[in-house]
């Protein structure tokens, strides 16, 4: 069978805790189905692979219209929002982050660092975006092991020929 293997590439551009997981979950599922996986981290998405940042991602209640009181355990309050005025209080972001992390832990979802390591071990190819790296003054050593390199947008286009691309 000379048939070429299916390929998926993810572009991770967000560094919020909730936006970190889509590529991790789908990338892992893809590897589990024998699909080649490439992940390109750009802008805030680089937080997923930065040693100092990856386990400190947060989720902010301010301006998040989907985050309702019911998430904080208040039953029947699916449509009652967390007022933005409350969201700006010190500690609210940390509180929301802790809630989400606790829920994920209860479901057996690994933390970001562990997930990234699983993907690397499973053969996913990880790259950081050159322009973002230059803009934020980062270096290869700021990234966890397994990040193969810092590449340009053009390089990414070359290496993802024939792949399905998902932007997050």
């Amino acid at each position: 069978m000379a048939e070429e293997n299916r390929k998926i590439a993810f572009i991770c551009s967000k560094g919020d805790l909730d936006m970190a997981y889509p590529a991790l979950v789908m990338g892992w599922a893809a590897l589990g189905n024998g699909i080649d996986v490439t992940i390109f981290f750009t802008f805030w998405g680089m937080d997923l692979i930065r040693k100092t940042r990856q386990d400190h991602l947060e989720i902010a209640p301010v301006a998040n219209t989907s985050m309702k009181m019911s998430m904080m355990g208040l039953k029947g309050m699916d449509n009652l929002g967390i007022p933005n005025l409350l969201g700006v209080l010190p500690g609210m972001t940390a509180f929301a982050t802790k809630l989400m992390k606790d829920k994920m832990k209860a479901l057996g979802v690994p933390p970001v660092s562990e997930y990234i390591q699983m993907l690397v071990d499973g053969g996913a190819k990880l790259y950081a975006c050159k322009m973002s790296v230059d803009m934020m003054g980062l270096k290869q050593e700021d990234f966890v092991d397994g990040v193969l390199g810092i590449v340009t947008a053009g390089d990414f286009m070359d290496m993802t020929e024939g792949a399905q691309i998902i932007f997050i």
């Binding site: 589990g32 024998g34 979802v109 690994p110 390591q117 071990d121 499973g122």
Partner: peptide, 30 residues
């Protein structure tokens, strides 16, 4: 380890080992 699993059962280890073991397809996202 994850690495060993992908080396032993390349391209979709959990699915492959489940089939070889006479079990159903594994469910779950992680």
């Amino acid at each position: 380890s994850t690495k060993d699993m992908f080396a032993l059962f390349p391209k979709g280890p959990a699915k492959k080992v489940a089939r070889i073991s006479g079990l159903g397809k594994p469910e779950g996202c992680v």
